[in-house]
Every structure is written in structure tokens, then in C-alpha cells.
């Protein structure tokens, strides 16, 4: 399976056919070491990831909790640069499931919106998630993503209005449902409002819905996978990578495989 074979929509069509939710793990580029990304992406592929989210580290990640803040700080201290991430992605994406970037808006704006989106597309990236770019502000980015053939992935929060959800019908790729009002992080429980939020989204639009924020264990993944089309796991995986030291790829592979096992029908 290579990324050129499959669109984001194609992934969800396939996992739906298999009777399960898609698994979308997240890693921060440049964390824990500058050049760990290829090994980690390879481990996530081996473990059964369906889409992989690569986080571009930012100095001021205001949607992130302590685990991903720490990972970003460490990645920047390691000397992680945007152009190096793009170059690494280009090599990795040939032999990986589809990759999407998670980035804050300022690195994109500073690089040049169209130039960044083109560079990402040329690196084989299929989609962009920008947590500080709400849909109402996203016309330029959306247009440029469409022109370059990648998806801008919109977010829906528990506080989002029906009008916001309805306005997402033009989105390609998938919808990122934020499970709770808050920032990313490892949590004990999943929010009880997830099921009704997914149902509310599906009343208005037909896109696949992947849920993220706070999903930390195989049991969480199983419960979210029963109601959503995709399960996004970030902080819990990054914390395991943090704790594993030199064994990070093996630890990541084992954890993601356990999440995948929990999603199998």
C-alpha cells in the first residue's frame, strides 16, 4: 500500500468495508530526536495505521496540552526545520499510508500559503489540519489546497453551531471532531458527548468523521471506533515515545498495534 494508491476518502471507504474505524496516530516531527521521523513512520505503518498525522513543531502551540507542547519544544531545540520535514516526508510518503500534516498557521503564513501547500503536496502529503485556522478564516487556504490537490481538514468542536457543521459540506478528506472542550492531552475518560456530536455532524454532512483529543487507550479507541469513522491518537502515543528512549519505534509499534487490535471487528 502506498500513498499514491489511496486518497483520504479511499482509506475510509476501505475501513468501512472492513467494518471498522480508521486508525490515525500522530507524531511530532523532530521528536524525540531530529531524524527519528522515518523510523517512527515505518513503525506506525507496520502496526496497522490507516492515515498518519505528522505534527510540525511550533513555538506557541495554543491548542496543545503539556505532552505535545513538550514534544514541540524538544523538536525545535533539536533544530527541526520546516524544509527538512518536507524533504523527509517526500521520502517517507512513497512507502507509507496517506500522511497529513498538523501545523499552526504562522509557519504556513510565513513560508507563503500557496508555496507551503504546493511543497506539502509535492512531498506526498494528502491533507492539512490547522488548529488555529477556523473554517470562517480559511477561504484562501481552502482554495489553495483544492488547487494543489490536497484536503484542508476542518474541525468540529462540541461548541460548534449547526451552521458551522453545515458549511463543511464542501470539505474533501474527512472531518476532525474534537471530543471535548479543551486542549490535546492524555485523559482517563472519554467525553460522554462524543456519540451525540458524531450523530449531529452526520445529520448535516456525509464526510467521514474522525475523533481526536484525549483518546488514550485501546479501550477508548474501541468505544470511539464504535461510533466514529476514524480514531486519532496523539498525546498518548507521544508520551509512550517519550518514555521509551531509544526503544521508541518498538514501543510506538506495540502501542499502535494494540489500538488497531481494539478497532478490529
Amino acid at each position: 500500500m502506498t500513498s499514491s494508491d489511496l486518497t483520504l476518502r479511499g482509506v475510509f471507504a476501505r475501513t468501512k468495508g472492513e467494518g471498522r474505524a480508521a486508525l490515525i496516530p500522530y507524531v511530532t516531527a523532530g521528536h524525540p530526536h531530529l531524524n527519528d521521523l522515518p523510523q517512527l513512520i515505518s513503525a506506525l505503518n507496520d502496526a496497522g495505521a490507516d492515515i498518519i498525522e505528522i505534527g510540525i513543531p511550533f513555538s506557541d502551540p495554543l491548542a496543545d496540552g503539556p505532552v505535545l507542547q513538550h514534544a514541540a519544544t524538544q523538536a525545535l531545540n533539536n533544530g527541526t526545520k520546516l524544509r527538512d520535514i518536507l524533504a523527509q516526508t517526500k521520502e517517507i510518503s512513497q512507502s507509507s499510508v496517506p500522511i497529513v500534516y498538523l501545523t499552526y498557521m504562522n509557519p504556513v503564513y510565513h513560508f507563503g500559503v500557496r508555496a507551503f501547500i504546493r511543497a506539502a503536496a509535492q512531498s506526498g502529503v494528502k491533507g492539512l489540519i490547522i488548529p488555529d485556522l477556523p473554517w470562517l478564516e480559511s477561504q484562501e487556504v481552502f482554495h489553495d489546497c483544492e488547487a494543489e490537490g490536497i484536503s484542508l481538514i476542518p474541525l468540529v468542536a462540541p461548541t460548534s453551531t449547526d451552521a458551522h457543521i453545515a458549511s463543511l459540506e464542501i470539505a474533501t478528506g474527512f472531518i476532525y471532531g474534537v471530543s471535548l472542550t479543551g486542549v490535546t492531552g492524555v485523559r482517563q475518560d472519554i467525553d460522554s458527548g462524543v456519540e451525540s456530536m458524531v450523530a449531529r455532524i452526520k445529520r448535516f454532512i456525509t464526510q467521514p468523521v474522525a475523533i481526536g483529543f484525549g483518546i488514550s487507550t485501546p479501550e477508548h479507541a474501541r468505544r470511539i471506533g464504535a461510533v466514529a469513522d476514524g480514531v486519532i491518537v496523539g498525546s498518548a502515543l507521544v508520551r509512550i515515545i517519550d518514555d521509551a528512549g531509544d526503544e521508541a519505534p518498538q514501543a510506538a509499534r506495540a502501542f499502535v498495534a494494540s489500538l488497531r487490535e481494539a478497532l478490529n471487528p
Binding site: A63, D132, W135, L136, E137, L155, A157, T159, S160, H164
Partner: peptide, 19 residues
């Protein structure tokens, strides 16, 4: 849209937009 010329706007998580 809260724009002063090209400046300003609302670059916040979707969660805050209704607020």
C-alpha cells in the same frame, strides 16, 4: 470579519468561535 485592512481576524481553535 474583524479586519483592519488585511490585519486582525480570528485565528483561534474552532471551539472558541461561538464564544
Amino acid at each position: 470579519a474583524g479586519r483592519y485592512g488585511g490585519f486582525g481576524g480570528r485565528y483561534v481553535p474552532e471551539t472558541l468561535m461561538p464564544a
